[in-house]
Each structure stands twice: as C-alpha cells, then as structure tokens.
C-alpha cells in the first residue's frame, strides 16, 4: 500500500471520527436549547427576547444533526470507494507486472485487455473519488455555516440574558454552552476539510 493510499484511508476514517464528535456536540446544543426554553418560560417577561432564540437554537441543532447524519452516510460511501480504488490500483499494478513478466510467452498479448480494462477502472475510481470529495467538502461547508450561525446566536443570547434579572446567570450559561459547542463543531469540521481538501485536486 502506498503512502498516499494509507493517507487516503486515514483521511476518510478520520471524517467519521470527527463527525461523531460533532454529533455529540449538536445533541448537547439541542439539550441546551430545551433547557433555555424552560428557563425563559420561568423568567416570563424578563426573558421575552430570549424565547424565540431558544427555538432558533433548537432548529439549528436539529439541522446540524441531520446534515451530519447525511455526511456520515456519504463518508461511508467514500470509504467503500477508497477500498475499491485500492483494489483496482493493486490489480492494475499486478496486471502490468504480469504482462511484463510474460514477455515472450505464447499468449502474452492476451494480457493487454485486462491491463487496459484495469487502468480504465482505476482511473474511473480516482475521478469518482475526487467528485465525491468535492461534494463532501460542500456538505461540510454547510455544517460550518451552521456553526457560524450558532456563534452569532450565542452572542445575541448573551445580550438578551443581560436583561433577564435573576435569570441572567442561567441564561448566560446557556449562551456560553452554545458558543462552546459551535466552536467545537467549527474546529472538528475544519479538520475534516483540511484532511480531505488535498484529495480534491490531487
């Protein structure tokens, strides 16, 4: 196995690992939203501005979970494609070697067709991999967008929390947890993008 193939396997496997962490954090945001809603309900008029924000946070968390679920399915497809590409590249290399070793054999020429077919299959796989990586990067960008939106919401939440009297601390804690979670999602997804981006144009 070449170093590039090993790196490709690692990159694809690391997406699943990073995204499972994102999933945990997105679920935490969802919980934070439910918690915030309960506090805002108790706070009544003092947290009036906070109430619509909780719905927004919840919606954002749901969408992130949905996106990550889809990306995970896509990452599995990409993993299978990586295995397929590895098998086809191995076959092509072995077929070429067999053709070379068979020079002078009565039926050496009959190896040309399998060699050509293996080369085309390998190239198809490589092109498909690049296409899929580009699409996956697009989906990851969507998650990043959600993470950025969550940080804006967290900033707004802090402002609203400051007007919530005795509920200030509880609501600020909610804002902090949303901000922290958004930060984690951003970092994890960014690592996925860096790991994959070298394959988009390789």
């Amino acid at each position: 196995m070449t170093n590039q193939t090993k790196s490709q396997f690692i990159a694809v496997a690391s997406i699943t690992s990073e995204l499972s962490a994102v999933m945990v954090v997105a679920k935490e945001i969802s919980l934070a939203a439910a918690n915030a809603k309960a506090i805002a309900f108790r706070a009544g008029d003092k947290a009036k501005g906070f109430q619509p924000i909780t719905d927004f946070i919840n919606e954002l968390a749901k969408e992130t979970i949905e996106l990550v679920t889809n990306i995970n399915i896509y990452a599995l497809v990409l993993y299978r494609l990586t295995v397929d590409e590895f098998q086809k590249t191995t076959a092509y290399n072995k077929f070429e070697l067999a053709a070379k070793m068979a020079e002078g054999a009565a039926y050496a020429k009959s190896m040309q067709e399998p060699v050509d077919h293996a080369r085309l299959s390998m190239q198809d796989c490589q092109r498909q991999f690049k296409r899929d990586v580009s699409q996956l990067l697009g989906q990851l960008e969507a998650v990043m967008h959600h993470a950025r939106a969550a940080r804006v919401i967290a900033a707004n939440s802090r402002i609203e929390a400051s007007q919530a009297g005795e509920y200030l601390q509880s609501l600020q804690a909610v804002a902090e947890s949303v901000d922290k979670a958004a930060h984690t999602i951003h970092d994890n997804v960014q690592r996925c993008r860096i790991a994959l981006s070298i394959y988009r144009n390789s």
Binding site: L97, A98, M101, A102, Y107, P114
Partner: peptide, 19 residues
C-alpha cells in the same frame, strides 16, 4: 496467494490466453 498472482499469470500465458 495474492503475492504469487503476477508470476502465476505470466507462467500460465505460456500455455493459454487469458480468455
């Protein structure tokens, strides 16, 4: 085994075409 594929295929080609 897989390691033996290329030399084995090359050897068989002395006796039969791939198809």
């Amino acid at each position: 085994g897989a390691e033996l594929f290329a030399p084995m295929m090359a050897a068989v080609l002395h006796h039969a075409p791939v198809d």
